[in-house]
Simulated scan of single mutants.
Amino acid sequence: MVFDVYAERVGRLLSMMDREGLDGFFVLVVEGLNWESAYYLSGYRGSSAAFLVSRHGGVLITDGRYLAQARSQSPFEVEDQGGRSLNEALLDRIRRMGLRRVGFEADRIFHSTFLELHSHLGGSLVDCSRFMPELRRTKDRREADLIAEAARICADAFLETLSLASPGMTEREFASMLEQKIVSSGAEGGWGSHSFIVASGPRSALPHGVPTDRVLCQGEWFTVDFGARYQGYVCDVTRNVAVGSLDPWARDVYQVLVAAQDQAVRALMEGERQASQVDQAARRVIQEAGMGDLFSHGLGHGLGLEVHEAPRVSSRSQDVLAPGDVITVEPGIYLEGKGGLRVEDDYLISSQGVECLSSPLPREMFVIR
């Protein structure tokens, strides 16, 4: 990525700061937590840093382990925190720059960190937790292409994994093989923040069923919710796999889910932008099939540098979808004691329409024998 994009993003951040009467804003990365926002603004992907933005520009503060990395990845000034803690170095820079009203992400720092910073800055700290979700929500073409490339890698890896899978292997073995294939196909890895969902038989009724040592059995099916990270960006896809033969109930449920997903996408293509109405378009199909009570979660969510980002697509969402949003559309039906299925794909909303970024992976009920 050319460095100009970071200047543009910091420029948008400065406009938000002006509206709030701020003369400074910082993001903290501690033990790798919150690297996404620092990367988005500065290009830096290390596991410890503070990125401070003001009218004077941006400054990236980190320690000796990351100085060379920071200077190669970011166009902004890099400051060595030296023998100081990260908090001490940040506070010192804020004082030297004379910043009086400084925004921060209250929902992205430890309470102990807040107490230390507040004890020195007091009322000059302003919670601006909404800034980064708002900035990161709108994806440019390059970001969408990175998500699409992650999805292409996932498609290749999933199909290869299916060709090697067989009844008798465990959920955990399938998940491990899939992630290994994703890495060998060119991705950084899976999501990183949590494991894939691989849930078989009655366990497939668990929307977030993490892999176990349960064996994939003949006559059952399993649901796989997975993704890849490519140059920082992730995809999020769900497919279902029959073992040996396709259960008639699962076949019927799958057809309902495909119709529900199609209806939601149709609503998007026709210009519907109220997230709650898009959710309702899919939910109505499931309700008409007599399974409305079995769709227990929202229709989707935004994604980008994280698996779950703004906006939310659910019956309670107040979000209005807009060009640049990348969202999942993932209707699911779950019957406790029997099992469940989900169909999930990733879509870019643009001024030209709606684009499925995960289209390389066929939307079908797969079978292993």
Rank of each mutant, 00 (worst) to 15 (best):
V59H: 08
V59W: 01
L60I: 08
L60H: 09
L60Q: 09
I61N: 06
I61E: 09
T62H: 06
D63T: 09
D63P: 09
D63C: 00
G64K: 08
R65F: 12
R65P: 08
Y66V: 11
L67Q: 05
L67D: 06
A68E: 15
Q69F: 12
R71L: 10
R71A: 12
S72D: 06
Q73A: 04
Q73R: 00
Q73L: 09
S74T: 04
S74C: 02
S74P: 10
P75F: 00
P75D: 02
F76H: 04
F76E: 02
F76D: 07
V78W: 01
V78R: 10
V78T: 08
D80Q: 10
Q81D: 05
Q81A: 10
Q81I: 08
G82M: 05
G82T: 06
G83S: 14
R84M: 08
S85L: 07
S85V: 08
S85Q: 07
N87G: 09
N87K: 06
E88A: 05
E88H: 07
A89L: 06
A89V: 00
L90S: 02
L91W: 11
L91M: 14
L91F: 10
L91K: 02
D92I: 08
R93G: 03
I94N: 07
I94K: 02
R95A: 14
R95P: 00
R96L: 12
R96E: 14
M97N: 00
M97K: 14
M97V: 04
G98V: 00
G98R: 13
G98F: 02
G98D: 08
G98Y: 06
G98C: 01
L99H: 04
R100V: 15
R100E: 15
V102Q: 05
V102F: 11
V102N: 01
G103Y: 01
G103S: 03
G103T: 06
F104S: 00
E105H: 07
A106Q: 11
D107Y: 01
D107T: 12
R108F: 03
I109Y: 09
I109G: 03
I109L: 12
I109C: 01
F110T: 11
F110M: 14
H111G: 14
H111K: 14
H111Y: 13
S112L: 09
S112H: 03
S112E: 13
T113Y: 00
F114A: 03
F114E: 04
L115Q: 12
L117Y: 05
H118Y: 15
S119F: 11
S119I: 10
H120I: 15
